[in-house]
């Protein structure tokens, strides 16, 4: 009943994609509703990040359709409703001369629109976003001078500053130590449960995502398994095998 009252934010239907030879994605469908915390997991090279990039319009699918907020992606213009934390969060130019506040302010640009100057309201939202993730006191520090975990938080703040309804995160814990990674997942959970923010997280870390997300989708070129954390708990071993070693052979 609850699921029926929630509106669909992302609706990807029968997506196939290829970089040239052979399909990287084959007939993948996924719906994300408001308030969901969807974890897309699978082994390296499974096409997780490619699927995310297709959903964001960065890549054009060979087949299939994507609707964002009930609009075909080709006609969608309200990009400020979507936040994005890219894979290269831990791999950007650390000598880039930009402060934490300047990075977070970039998250307001989609909402502000072209040719329009940054306003007091934009700065207020940046302050709110940086305060929410505990980085306001670092606002004048250069992003390159922070630790990996702090940099990640700043990129989350950038996504939050635009007041999006959904945030996509592409392998955000790559290269981060375990303690920082756990803190990061706790922050995501907090944003999802306390602020009702919809999250789509791509990760190769099946067990950790299964603990955190409300919906788990295992992909390896196509959808191998999808279900809730409760269903995952019941058949976790089989799903782990499915995700990292492929389907078990049928014995007659």
């Amino acid at each position: 009943m609850h699921a029926l009252t929630r509106h669909t934010l992302i609706d990807a239907r029968h997506i196939s994609f290829s970089y040239g030879e052979g399909e990287v994605l084959h007939d993948i469908s996924l719906s994300v509703c408001a308030g969901d915390y969807v974890g897309i997991v699978g082994p390296n090279g499974a096409g997780k990040s490619t699927f995310l990039r297709v959903m964001l319009g960065l890549l054009t699918p060979l087949q299939g359709n994507i609707a964002l907020f009930n609009e075909p992606i080709q006609e969608f213009r309200e990009w400020w409703r979507i936040g994005y934390v890219p894979q290269k969060v831990t791999n950007f130019d650390i000598n880039f001369p930009v402060t934490v506040e300047e990075v977070a302010l970039m998250g307001r640009y989609a909402k502000r629109g072209m040719f329009k100057k940054v306003t007091i309201e934009d700065r207020r939202q940046v302050e709110a976003a940086l305060t929410k993730i505990g980085m306001w006191e670092y606002r004048n520090r250069l992003i390159g001078d922070l630790s990996g975990g702090q940099q990640q938080r700043v990129f989350i703040a950038r996504a939050l500053a635009g007041q999006p309804e959904i945030i996509f995160l592409d392998e955000p814990t790559t290269g981060i130590d375990e303690v920082t990674r756990n803190e990061f997942y706790a922050l995501l959970k907090h944003l999802n449960t306390e602020f009702g923010l919809t999250l789509v997280l791509v990760s190769h870390d099946l067990e950790k995502v299964a603990e955190e997300a409300s919906h788990i989708v295992v992909i390896d070129r196509t959808v191998m398994w999808a279900g809730s954390p409760q269903e995952f708990a019941q058949e976790g071993h089989r799903i782990h095998h499915l995700a990292y070693h492929g389907p078990e052979p049928h014995h007659s």
Binding site: L58, W79, Y84, F92, M106, F168
Partner: peptide, 9 residues
């Protein structure tokens, strides 16, 4: 700073 995120925006 981040061309990909700029595209998404």
């Amino acid at each position: 700073f981040d061309e990909e995120s700029a595209l998404v925006a």
